[in-house]
Nucleic acid binder design. Structure first.
Length: 597
RNA sequence: GGGGGCGUAGUUAAGUUGGUUAUAACGCCGGCCUGUCACGCCGGAGGCCGCGAGUUCGAGUCUCGUCGCUCCCGCCA
């Protein structure tokens, strides 16, 4: 039997009571985390979203409530009315915020009972529960303290963001979820239209075009914390529906946007972790990032840099290196100071297997021993090559060098993965550090060998650097853009650009991308039209809120910072979505299934 | 689409070379216990070893398939 809440009003959250409250009569409500029944006195650890307070049932104090308390089990929901008392000196608990006091219960109401749980909610039991069970009973998983902390932090970050942006004249404006499919980019989630049979809405991959239109409309600083949808395969840090902090500003240059975002990050870190960021956040041009780290989102906590040694080995007798260069590829080296005795032959074999995942065909290496170079490849080097390598890398006894030789793409990919892998494996980075870097000046486009055409690095609305606009005519010239990504500890957490606000330039870019006028018209006609009616210069940025929260709270999976996430197969174990629908619903949507088994 | 890992009481795990009745801890149920805080002590119940084939005198263990979860590659302007 359960009791009614009637007439009871909660007076305190369960993290609030202190010694100064001793003597007060209070009403507490929450969940039974633990019970310690001594036959006589019964202790209950009562828990809510804020914290935990010990309540005590003593048969001499109140035998009726004590008798009732014997029924209590894990996760019963109760209300208690009683007196705050000091705990005896020897039984104060300094691990608890409320550990000086306890509540002596006069009245107990059992508001609801709980069946035995499918897994323990008390995390002090230190049992790691399998994730599919957690996801099936997500409402219980979310009741666990560690999950509550993460979602509370998520809410706090969202609040900091909103406060900051409101203070800086941003307006929060919603944009449609039921919108139009865009041609390139990720796969769209489609929604059939009932009233227009055979036609579909798409869920937005981002509010990109709408926020640009808002700039045309004069809402010169817009933001939105908004869901975006991309129907692609999942990863530990990627869900098909995810949340962006989306922004757009008029009359700005990249510098101003980065400056404002620096301040926003500083506020978030100050208010959620009490960490003071040093501003301005570091900036690094794309080309330099690729040269030194091999990717556009380097983890700068790792004190290792890649060194291009292509020129040294262009004519080498070691054909693996020289032929890579002659085919237009590169040779890059990664040196570990004093790494020689940290990595066994077995470790090196494992690293070789590791880089093969990313397309490398092998992993060349040299150990610089006191008595000479140890390596399977060094016998192919001549003295000049050895000397230049020595000079370029400043080698010392005890060092080890790894090499990648292949196309630029493969070498950079394999060696940056190696750099990150070794950095973590050898404990070269501080797990608690937060290392930001802006990557700027991305190329506007890159040539796609497979499709024999140019692809956008960012998206087709990104503005080229002004001085590069004349170069657009020349297919061989690299054109850079007014773009910027913010990276934190090797993860891209946000990215944006200044947009094109001239119809002529936008059309020129479409043309270069092999988007013909007709399809540009069909897909983006409304944007092109809008650009002709006083579109101001504008640009923006979007942050991945989920990834940011992950990094802030040290979660290893994006699922840990999303209340109701999808599994890797994009299903929901709690609701069992996606699911079949009846023929009536399908008929209304003019949909006939054609499932290929 | 491809590669790796995992799947054994409610939970987390152990389970030897294929060999009697499949173990343990926590949880659950019952009893005892008036200062615990992961309370303690005694007792008990609880199993389609993910599912399906196969090999074998005999399969939790070996083989194949399949399902689920997960990590990665491809994919993610």
């Amino acid at each position: 039997m359960t009791d009614n809440i009637n007439g009871m009003k909660r007076t305190h959250y369960l993290d609030e009571l202190r010694a100064s409250d001793i003597g007060k009569t209070v009403v507490l409500m929450g969940w039974v985390l633990r019970r310690r029944d001594h036959g006589g006195v019964i202790f209950i650890d009562l828990k809510d979203i804020k914290g935990l307070t010990q309540v005590v049932f003593n048969p001499e104090h109140n035998s009726e409530s004590h008798g009732k308390a014997r029924q209590l089990r894990s996760e019963f929901v109760i209300a208690v009315k009683g007196i705050v008392r000091s705990r005896p000196d020897e039984s104060q608990n300094s691990n608890l915020a409320t550990g000086e006091i306890e509540v002596f219960v006069d009245e107990l109401r059992i508001l609801n009972r709980s069946k035995p749980l499918p897994f323990v909610i008390d995390e002090d039991d230190n049992i790691e529960v399998s994730e599919n069970l957690r996801l099936k009973y997500r409402y219980l998983d979310l009741r666990r303290e560690s999950m509550q902390k993460k979602l509370v932090m998520r809410s706090n970050v969202a609040r900091s963001v909103r406060e900051f942006l409101y203070e800086n004249d941003f307006l929060e404006i919603e944009t449609p979820f039921l919108t139009k499919s865009t041609p390139e980019g990720a796969r769209d989630y489609l929604v059939p239209s009932r009233v227009t049979p055979g036609k579909f809405y798409a869920l937005p991959q981002s509010p990109q075009l709408f926020k640009q239109l808002l700039m045309v409309s004069g809402y010169d600083r817009y933001f939105q914390i908004v869901k975006c949808f991309r129907d692609e395969d999942l990863r530990a840090d990627r869900q098909p529906e995810f949340t962006q902090i989306d922004m757009e500003l008029s009359f700005v240059e990249p510098d101003e946007i980065m400056e404002i975002m620096d301040k926003m990050m500083a506020k978030i870190f100050k208010e959620t972790l009490d960490i003071e960021l040093t501003l301005p956040l570091k900036r690094l041009p794309y080309d330099e990032a690729m040269e030194k780290y091999g990717l556009d989102a380097p983890d700068l906590r790792i004190p290792l840099e890649l060194v291009d040694v292509s020129d040294i080995f262009a004519e080498s007798g070691f054909k693996v290196f020289s032929s890579a260069v002659s085919k237009g590829g590169i040779v890059k080296a990664l040196k570990l100071d004093g790494g020689s005795d940290k990595l066994s032959r077995k470790d090196i074999d494992d690293l070789t297997d590791f880089v093969k995942i990313y397309g490398a065909k092998g992993l060349a290496w040299i150990k610089i021993n006191p008595d000479g170079w140890q390596s399977p490849i060094v016998k192919f080097f001549n003295d000049d090559e050895k000397e230049r390598l020595q000079g370029r890398l400043r080698l010392n006894p005890g060092d080890i060098i790894f090499f990648g030789a292949d196309t630029k793409r493969v070498v950079n990919e394999a060696i940056w993965r190696l750099r990150a892998h070794i950095g973590k494996k050898l404990g070269m980075l501080d797990d608690d550090a937060f290392s930001f870097v802006w990557i700027t000046d991305f190329p506007l486009m890159e040539y796609n060998e497979d499709e024999k055409r140019f692809d956008c690095v960012h998206h087709p609305f990104t503005a080229p650097n002004d001085e590069d606009i004349p170069l657009l005519e020349d297919k061989d010239k690299l054109v850079y853009s007014k773009s910027y990504d913010l990276c934190l500890n090797g993860s891209e957490i946000g990215g944006g650009s200044i947009r094109i606000h001239s119809k002529e330039l936008q059309n020129k870019i479409f043309k270069m991308l092999n988007i013909d006028e007709e399809s540009a018209r069909e897909k983006f006609g409304f944007l092109l039209d809008a650009l002709e009616f006083g579109a101001p210069p504008h640009g923006g940025i979007a942050f991945g809120l989920d990834r940011l929260i992950m990094l802030l709270c040290g979660a290893e999976s994006i699922r840990d910072v999303i209340a109701f996430p999808k599994t890797q197969k994009a299903t929901c174990l709690l609701t069992d979505a996606p699911d079949k629908v009846g023929t009536k619903q399908l008929n209304e949507l003019s949909i006939k299934l054609n499932v290929i088994e």
